[in-house]
Design a protein around this nucleic acid. Sequence first.
DNA 1: CAGTGAGCGAGCTTCCGCTTGACTT
Length: 773
Amino acid sequence: MKLVIVESPGKIKKISSYLGNGYVVAASFGHVRDLPAKKDDLPEKYRSEPWANLGIDVNNKFRPYYVRSSSKSAQIQKLLDLSSKATEILLATDADREGEAISWHLLQLLKPKVPVHRMVFFEITQSAIQKALQNLRPLDLNLVGAQESRRCVDRLYGYEISPLLWKMGPRLSAGRVQSVALRMVAERELERIEFVPTAFISLDSLTEHGFTARLTHFQNQRVATGKDFDSKGKLRDGAYPFSKEEADGVAAQLKKHPLTLQKDEEKPFTQKPPAPFITSSMQQEASRKLGFSVKKSMEVAQKLYEAGYITYMRTDSPALSDEGTQGARAAVGQHYDAKLLPANPRVYASKNQNAQEAHEAIRPSGKVFRDLQQARKDLADDEYRLYELIYKRTLASQMIDAQGRQRVLTLNLDNHLFTASGKTYDELGFRTLYVEGKDEQEEEGEKLPQMQVGDLVKVKKTTVKNNKTQPPARYTEPKLVQTLEKAGIGRPSTYASILTNIETRGYIQRTKNTLHATWLGMAVVKFLTEKFPRFLDYTFTAEMEKQLDDIAEGKRTRLDYLTHFYFEEGGLSVELAAYRQQPHTETDFTPEILKEAGLRIRIQDGTPLLSMSGKAVKIPDSLKPDDLTPEKAQELLGSGETITVAAPAASAQKRTLGFHEGKEVVVGMGKYGPYLKVGEEFRKLKVHASAIPHLTLEKALQMAEAASSENSVLKELQHGRGKIQVRRNDRGMYLASGKNFAPLQEGTSLDDLTYQQASEMLKQHQDSRKKRA
DNA sequence: CAGTGAGCGAGCTTCCGCTTGACTT
């Protein structure tokens, strides 16, 4: 028996049918081993190692320690049983970096004594599977090395930077993907906060022919529209700030005089159909047309996949297999119109360099697509609607271009120019079936009549409108996914969980489908971009991918790249050390507009507080940062429940004061009193517990310095097993022996002091205390 | 005045990417 291992159990049935007798197909259910999530997941002998928390011994060639994924234990056991009976093992995990790594981990886990080969295919058809069987190869260890590098970068990045955020609030996190995704949302919110809206005027005329013409030039000067103002409300060069008075003047003129048609231009255009769906474009369209969230799209698609209706839904390749192309063309011919098919099939390739393309596009599965009537009968409503979208998109992708003409009319009155534009389709092509981004085929532009240049056009009604420039729109879920995808950040299997993650951490909130950053999210972004700019750069992942490609091609070693990433100049550990050297100042992320009003926002225990001259209130969760104007802030400060700013309420809690000579300085309350911890070293601190919250770094260091001159042992007197110390503290010199103490006159000559004398003094002191008691 | 002094000092949170069910509400 030959054992074939794939990732997804959904593939087992079909592959088995193509392989026939003598083969058993089983699934790994994804990755089977990973770095330990916490040190307790390691075998006991490693738990006290300095690298135990990271799971990577960075000083020993970045050696990773892998543990079995506990949730997969039943499946792993099954694979172990099967592999012990197998005569040969074929590792048929996905044909990408992660798939190669899964195969390698399986090999480490199963330790088979029989021959092992890697088997690769890009579609599940009889011919593709047979071809794969004839082209078996060994594991590509360079590709495995690239994956392991990626894993190490993510672990080191996430586990080294996240703890820095725990001063802001518990359980906060940073990561290569999530922090950049958050940065996008947070920066958009900040743009909106700092946006200065500006008023501008527009003028539209409804003509006797029923089309509307818009004023573009006033006395031959181009009228400013919303696009002519920058985010601060400044007018760009070349645009004319058209006023209400001028608009009313033009409107009055139009009541008396007609417009003259000055130009009638027509340009032909063609439109190509959109490419077949990949994960991100499917999410986008399911959101726009069906109102699905990213999560819901994936859940519904999973059901369609399991029901055998569609190909795999987590893909970054828009390419159709031969089977898919033929299926789409056949369906167009059968259910629509063979005239809509181009002579040659259309071929699609990913525009994204980081795409791994282990799967084909998302399309109806099989050689013969299940038609919509059949689907209607078999599927639940949501599933049908998504299937219909996928079906039409796939068919449209194989249809001919749409063709038409774009017409623009220019009309004139006294050098005031107006334009009206319209589109006419001569060939709808793929648009008969599918139009991207729209529910139905909408009219684009006006219906324009046939006219001659020089014709007069009467205006029936003129509308003067007061407009306001709009701040940049917030991201929607799929828009953020698409932006990430274009930047090569994240993978199809993770898009939905990226959103869930930054939401459950309280970094962003969603209302319907639009996303906005919370104050916590904005604070985290400000901190990270200020302290670790290189790691928050939008191109960081793309750069990493280049290096991973080099590793995969054998041009660079894993060790070389990780050393660069971690140890070399600008590397993570270097930047972390530099951060720890800095005077530990709190990052102020209060937007300028609020700061100018004397307001301050800070995060305390994960909660955003608004403060002004010592008074502070909690900012309600429901208030979007964009909506916190200085006026709203005053209202909150007036009404809200006042709380103490930076109140280290539990005075016994330890607190970082800052950094001294590269060592973290922490003040805390021990069982027997306050202490200062400088690096790993403890120092006694003589303050009342209530004073701890008010300690500054300088003051605490001074006090510790003073305390360290205390209690120095000046002399030790030994006699047999007895020992008496002469010590000094801030009150003076004293003798100490066990729990007995006695003061010593200042200026006593220590050189001459004998054990016997000291012992006598201690005894007398105890006697005199007893008497008094 | 009475009576210090030294000792002690928590451990946790976290990453990305690949797969499905097994859970609860």
